[in-house]
């Protein structure tokens, strides 16, 4: 069983301190929701863990089953079992979805999947997320709607089967139907009980479909309150105001 352990993580962007000591442990079988107002550093946490070059780690550790991810390159982290579903997946011209997915699956599994098997998995994955099969031939994220991009992120997660998935505002910009489809994907993914999910969101809406075990409130670069699912209810009713005031 896998464990992601974030210890006193401090992160800066261009000399500006964004994360100011984050501690969080996500175990396989658990779903953690991180909630917080805009600008609180939620996305910074996601991208810093994944290794985006824009973020400078100024202190702390991120351990996946004891291995410090911060010592690894971006691709090594992914191959170690980390997945980041991006809030704004970029368009990559000229790289087809099927070619990209096959390259990613090959890299993560360490060997090329059998073509027929891969085609079958891909089709099943796309069906489950109501993705038009023609997408496989399209360029990566090019011309995808917001909802299509997010469904495609979840498709990747299901195909790559990471140990820990970090979902960065996967719910933002989705209509109710798309939210349901995406949530079902996340629930399929965590149903095995062998994977951990760190769900970053601004809104409580997705938590009605994807029930978290733990809720953490993020403000001004650190976790300021923790609790069970009931904390989300409280946030729904009261908003983030008390936290933003307190940390200001």
């Amino acid at each position: 069983m896998s464990t992601l352990e974030i210890r006193d993580l401090q992160v800066a962007v261009e000399d500006k301190e964004i994360l100011r000591g984050v501690n969080l442990t996500v175990k396989a079988g658990q779903t953690h929701a991180i909630m917080g107002p805009n600008g609180s550093g939620k996305s910074t946490l996601a991208y810093a863990i994944a290794g985006h070059p824009k973020y400078t780690i100024t202190g702390g550790q991120v351990l996946l089953d004891g291995v410090d991810l911060l010592e690894l390159s971006v691709d090594e982290r992914a191959r170690a079992g980390l997945f980041l579903a991006m809030q704004y997946p970029v368009e990559v011209p000229g790289v087809s979805v099927s070619n990209f997915l096959r390259s990613a699956v090959t890299a993560v599994r360490g060997e090329a999947p059998k073509l027929r098997e891969f085609a079958k998995d891909l089709k099943a994955g796309m069906d489950a997320l109501s993705i038009d099969p023609a997408f496989a031939q399209r360029n990566l994220n090019e011309g995808f709607s917001g909802g299509e991009k997010k469904r495609h992120e979840i498709l990747q997660m299901e195909l790559l089967k990471p140990k820990i998935a970090v979902l960065d505002e996967t719910d933002s910009g989705l209509d109710v139907d798309a939210l349901r489809v995406v949530s079902e994907g996340i629930n399929r993914f965590r149903a095995s009980g062998e994977t951990g999910v760190l769900l970053i969101t601004h809104y409580t809406r997705i938590l009605r479909y994807v029930k978290p075990d733990f809720v953490h409130v993020f403000a001004a670069g650190r976790i300021v309150e923790e609790g069970g699912p009931e904390l989300a209810e409280k946030l729904e009713a009261e908003g983030y105001e008390q936290y933003t005031k307190a940390s200001a």
Binding site: A50, G51, H52, P53, S73, V74, D75, R77, A78, R79, F83, L84, M86, P89, V90, V92, P93, G94, V95, N99, F100, S103, A104, A107, V108, N139, L140, Q156, L160
Partner: peptide, 22 residues
């Protein structure tokens, strides 16, 4: 970054992007 975040090593990510571009 996007390609590497899916496990694809840098050199191959670069090849994919250039191959796509041309």
């Amino acid at each position: 970054f996007y390609l590497q975040a899916r496990g694809i090593p840098y050199d191959e990510a670069r090849r994919l992007v250039v191959r796509g571009f041309l």
